[in-house]
Structure formats: C-alpha cells, structure tokens
Amino acid sequence: MSELKDRVKAATSGPDDQPQEPAPVTDLAVNDSVRQWLQRRQTYFTDALPRHVDKAHFMSVALASMEKLKDCTPASINTALLACCRFGLEPDGRQAAIIPYKEVATFQPMYEGYIELMYRHPRVDSVHFGWIREKDQWDYTPTEPSPRDFFHKPRVDLSEADRGPVILAYAFAWIDGRRSQVIMLNRSQAEAIRDKYSKAYKNAERKGTRDSTWHTDFDAMWAKSSVRRLVKVVPTSHDLTELLQADDAVDDAQPAPPVIRGTVISRDDEPGPDDQETPTPTWPKTAQPGGGAEGGEQE
C-alpha cells in the first residue's frame, strides 16, 4: 500500500516534489480550424433554422464565411451563427453578415435580410428595391394615387457608366394587391442620417482614419437606410421587430450580442445599425449601385 502511495505521489509531483497545477482545459474550437469546429456542430445550428430554410445550403454558406472569422472567439461565432439561424438569414454578405471585430464575431443583418423577412408576412406580395441613375427615366408625384405616383425605367440602351451616377435609392412593397408608399432616399438624405447617427463615422473622422463603413461602403449603408424606412409602412411581424432590435443593439455597445426581444425604438430617421465606435468592422463588399443581384436593382 505504501509503494502505491509513493507512485501516485511521484506521478502528481514536480521535480521539486511540489504538486503540479492541473492542465488547463483546452477548447477544441480554438485549436482546430473554424471549419472543423462548425462541421462538428452542424446539427446544433441546423436544428435552430426555420423549416423553410435549406439546411445544406445554409451550412455551405456558413462554412464559406468561416475563414475570415479564424481569429474570433468560438463563443462569439456561436452567438452570431445562432442569430442567423434565429432569423433564417444566410451569412452571405447580402442577407446577413458575420463581421469580425478583432476577436469578436458579430451578427449584422443586411438590406436583403430585411426584405426577406418582409416577404414572409402573409399580406406582403412582393418587395422592391432599386437605384435611380441620373439619365434614367423616372417620375415621382406623391399626390397621385398608387401606382401612378411613381415609375422608374432604367436606360437599358446605355451602359451603366453612361447612365450616370446614382441619385436616388427607393423601396416599396405590394401589400394585399396594393402598392405601399414609395420610400425615396437621395444621397444628401443618406449623408444626413450618417452625420446624425453614425458613431463610427464621427470617430473615424475625428481620428482621420476614414475607415468606418460609411467611408468604405457608403452604398450598402445608403441602401440599408432606405429599406429600414420601408419597415415603417409594411405589416410588422414579430421576427421583423426583433431583427430591428438586434440590428440597433450593435450600435449600443462594442461589441454586444444581438438583442432579439423587446420593442422597437421609434424615430424619424433610424440610425444605421452598422454605425460602430471602435473597433471598425471589416464589411463584405457590396456591388456598385445598379450592378445586379448583389446590391443592384431587384425589380
């Protein structure tokens, strides 16, 4: 018995006969690649998806987004992916994005994500977003009844460059067979929203870094501001309300997990949900206005 005790003591003692500290618990998600981490937890995420979402496609998109998150903590990636699953939005940079804030991965809905959730309401027939360029044919007369109050005809006989710069973003929905109010947002209005609400923009201007999202991807912010205003005139679902809440929560703390419960703060000009203090996120690039499926006209 004494010999056995001596063996146990030797196995648990250091060279100076001092008890060794227990080995730290290793998180496999840190040592393994994020792709392997996600693959091992595939069922965990797919079980959280709404039934209408294609699980295999969602996971393939999620896997493709993992490389840029390799320096983020597993807990933050887990939280961001669960938020995507909660709303049934793919982290493809169009419906939603998972943005690395140094070591923290943060869920960020994009303007197509808002449109996707609007579509899910049974009263909404369709949702449209578009860019108007300088030489396009268009007219907007608010006093006319719908749908005669607005029309837009892109100049298909001209190249995108020849159509001129983008002058307006617009969005509207068809609800119960009738068209909603048309939301129009010109560049100066988008800049006013940026100047009033964007903490990240003010911080980047103050520091002279000019690396906020409003600096690096103004068009994405412009588009999103337009679609967020449309939320006010379409039937509101519980999911859409929670998405707004989660989006706004990103601006409340740096970084913070999304809030998916509570009420929506009502104000005339919604602050850009991507308006961050520091650190500045790395955003997926958005196609140029009028450039097609990725950030272009969707009509």
Rank of each mutant, 00 (worst) to 15 (best):
L230T: 01
A80C: 04
F218C: 03
L4E: 15
S159I: 05
D125M: 05
R148W: 04
R187D: 08
L63D: 11
R210L: 07
D32Y: 15
I132W: 01
E134V: 02
A29H: 14
R210I: 04
E205I: 14
R41E: 09
D247V: 00
T26F: 03
R120M: 08
K55Y: 08
F218I: 12
L38E: 11
T216K: 14
K68R: 14
H57R: 14
S146N: 10
P281C: 06
R261D: 15
P284T: 12
P255A: 03
L244D: 06
F58M: 01
H121M: 04
P109L: 07
A293K: 09
Q18E: 09
M66N: 07
T12W: 09
T216N: 10
A204S: 14
P235H: 10
V250F: 15
S60R: 13
T263E: 15
P50Q: 06
P22R: 08
E134I: 01
S60P: 02
C72P: 02
P281A: 03
S2T: 11
G290R: 00
H52K: 10
F107L: 02
V227G: 08
D6P: 00
E294K: 12
A105S: 05
A287K: 12
D139F: 11
R41L: 06
A192S: 15
L49Q: 06
G291Q: 12
A56V: 15
A293L: 10
A287H: 13
T26A: 09
F87L: 02
Y111D: 14
A246V: 00
E297S: 13
R51I: 02
V234A: 08
I183H: 03
N31Q: 15
A23F: 04
D268A: 04
A171Q: 09
G290N: 04
D149N: 13
M221F: 06
D162N: 11
E205A: 13
D17A: 10
D6E: 10
V124L: 01
E191F: 02
W283C: 13
D27C: 07
D251F: 08
R35V: 15
V61S: 04
D32C: 09
A173L: 12
W174F: 11
E277K: 11
P255H: 04
Q245L: 10
V124A: 00
V127H: 04
V127M: 05
V250D: 11
P154N: 02
D162Q: 14
Q288L: 12
S180P: 08
D32I: 10
L240H: 06
I115Y: 00
G88Q: 06
S226D: 10
P154K: 00
F172M: 04
V156K: 04
Q189E: 12
R229A: 11
V124K: 00
Q42W: 10
H121A: 00
